[in-house]
Design a protein around this nucleic acid. Sequence first.
DNA 1: ATTCTCACA
DNA 2: TGTGAGTA
Length: 96
Amino acid sequence: MRIGQVAEQAGVSVRALRYYEEQGLLAAERTAGGQRDYPPSAVDRVRFIQNLYAAGLSSRAVLRILPCMEHGVLTDEMHERLLAERARVETQAGRA
DNA sequence: ATTCTCACA
DNA sequence: TGTGAGTA
């Protein structure tokens, strides 16, 4: 699917989707014409990223824990990251 | 409609 | 972490 559709269904701007790709958060294939082509799963992925942002995680933090969703595996480094983020989120409970 | 880049909060 | 503007 193309970027406009993903943006509408995920509830974010087209600009934001291109920004996520720039940050390495969302991969997109390219059509022959150079347009981004997203798998339907991209919608859920974007929604998940929104949740992490809403919890106050930076894109850098998201980048470190997001791969465990793809592969279904959790490295020690990711586990530590998740524990650290949870502690931080609990500390600032309520904000951003 | 989509692509890109630069500059700005 | 995004957006606006100009471009092709």
